[in-house]
Computed example of a mutant assay.
Amino acid sequence: MDQEGVDPDFTATAAVTGDQVVVTVTGEVDMSTADAMFRAATDDPATAQATLDLRAVTFFDSAAIHALLRLAERYGAGLRVHPSAQVRRVLEISGLSTQPWLLSE
């Protein structure tokens, strides 16, 4: 984790189709990048469903968990999350591995 600023490998790219947004995230999601992930998923107010592709995420901290929980509040049953092994482990430790939005990989 880069404590001096944003991870240079971090990206959060959104693609909207109809009422669905797909956000592909890479790199570290931490206190310096979690809000960017959240904004990418919520920039279009017309979206009712969101898919987060976190399979290329290498680090996921408590700020990232908070952003994910805010997205779960925003999208409810319309949220789907594809985790990396690191993200899945953090969610297991946090007691969130049984959430309906967390997909098996």
Rank of each mutant, 00 (worst) to 15 (best):
D2V: 10
V25W: 04
D30L: 05
V81A: 04
A41R: 05
I93F: 10
V22L: 06
A46C: 03
L91Q: 01
D35M: 15
T47E: 02
G76S: 09
G95M: 03
E73R: 13
R89I: 02
V6C: 10
S104H: 15
L79V: 09
V57I: 02
V81F: 04
V29G: 07
V87N: 00
Q3E: 14
F60Q: 04
L79G: 04
R80I: 14
A85V: 13
W101V: 07
R80W: 06
V87S: 02
Q99D: 13
D43W: 11
L79M: 09
Q3P: 04
E105H: 13
A85F: 10
S104D: 15
T58C: 09
F38A: 10
I65C: 08
D35H: 15
D19F: 04
D2K: 10
L52A: 04
F59R: 03
T58R: 15
F38Y: 15
D44I: 09
Y75L: 13
A41W: 10
L69E: 10
D44T: 14
T58L: 14
D61E: 09
F38P: 00
S104Y: 10
V22N: 00
E73I: 06
M31V: 14
S97L: 11
R88S: 12
D7E: 12
G5N: 01
L91S: 08
S104R: 15
S104M: 12
P8M: 12
D35K: 15
Q99W: 12
A64C: 13
G78Q: 03
P100R: 00
Y75R: 08
